[in-house]
């Protein structure tokens, strides 16, 4: 299966007897933003685990830009240009904000032109002796890290020397996203990026994603999101997942107002369109 984009084909993941993801298929093209919605336990996070290689599918295939990835380790998939955040955001607690973002660019620091990695000896010599080729690379990656941090205005940049563990919940999420963006991914997978954020912070995040769409017109964005108002504003397409299966895949307005979705998502039928956000626990 050649071609650009992330292509998930008929993928299943079974935990014990539970079919967390059950024959799901979906496609994320470069330049588009897709939202995955669905009730808790629908298998949304598991799907991201499978795409990013953190967990392995029991059946089905996943391709990233024509490369089959469902058997690859997570670091290889990340180096293909897939950046993902975690539902419980994972920062490096003892590392400073600045160091954390630099960790995100480390794979590019040691990448060669052919897409492979520098051998450890060259890497060691570069780092120990501060060779010119190495210094040029470091400068380029530090610039990328700085740009990524400054995307968040004065939320992160002034705190760049603080350890990540001292950050607020929302800032940890921002830091995680900054780390991903610093690596300039082709695809960005965000697992509930607005969870735990207040309305102002959610609005900031929405703006950030809209800005990203403009500034990175070739990046594909996949967002798992419960806040439907956010979904309506950012997504080109919505994939509704329920009990591990893709229920509907359509434009936001069609998908979110579909009676079956309203019922599956809210647990009861609702008259009229709903602009309200779903609750989640």
């Amino acid at each position: 299966m050649a071609g650009e984009g992330i292509i998930v084909d008929n993928v299943s993941r079974i935990f014990g007897g539970l079919r967390a993801v059950d024959g799901a298929s979906l496609k994320l093209a470069r330049g588009e933003t897709v939202a995955i919605v669905g009730p808790n336990g629908a298998g949304k996070s598991t799907l991201v685990q499978l795409i990013s290689g953190v967990d392995k599918a029991d059946s089905g295939t996943i391709h990233v830009d024509g490369v089959r990835t469902d058997r690859l380790p997570p670091d290889r998939i990340a180096r293909l240009g897939v950046g993902r955040s975690f539902q419980t955001s994972r920062v490096f607690p003892a590392l400073s904000v600045w160091d954390s973002v630099l960790v995100g660019v480390q794979p590019r620091l040691i990448a060669t032109a052919s897409g492979r990695l520098l051998d450890p000896v060259t890497e060691s010599l570069g780092a120990l002796l501060g060779l010119p080729f190495w210094r040029r690379r470091v400068a380029a990656q530090e610039a990328a890290a700085e740009t990524a941090l400054k995307l968040f205005g004065d939320r992160l940049w002034p705190r760049r020397d603080q350890p990540a563990l001292g950050l607020s919940y929302a800032n940890r999420r921002r830091l995680e996203i900054a780390r991903l963006l610093a690596a300039e991914p082709r695809y960005l997978l965000l697992d509930e990026p607005s969870a735990g954020m207040n309305p102002t912070e959610t609005e900031e995040l929405t703006q950030l994603i809209l800005d990203l769409r403009r500034s990175h017109p070739h990046m594909g964005i996949l967002v798992i999101e419960h806040k439907l108002s956010l979904v309506r504003r950012i997504a080109d397409r919505v994939v509704v997942l329920n009990q591990g299966k893709v229920l509907i895949e359509d434009t936001p307005d069609h998908a979110l107002d579909h009676p079956e979705v309203v019922e599956a998502y809210l647990g009861r039928p609702r008259a009229g369109s709903n602009f309200q956000d779903a609750h989640h626990g």
Binding site: S52, G53, V54, P73, P74, D75, A78, R79, G83, R84, F86, R90, V91, F92, P93, A94, L95, D99, S100, V103, G104, Q106, P107, L117, R179, L180, A183
Partner: peptide, 17 residues
Amino acid sequence: RAIREDRLAAQASGLPV
């Protein structure tokens, strides 16, 4: 240190842990 702090996040960031 990143690997020490969170091995999974380090690997998912593309680092050959």
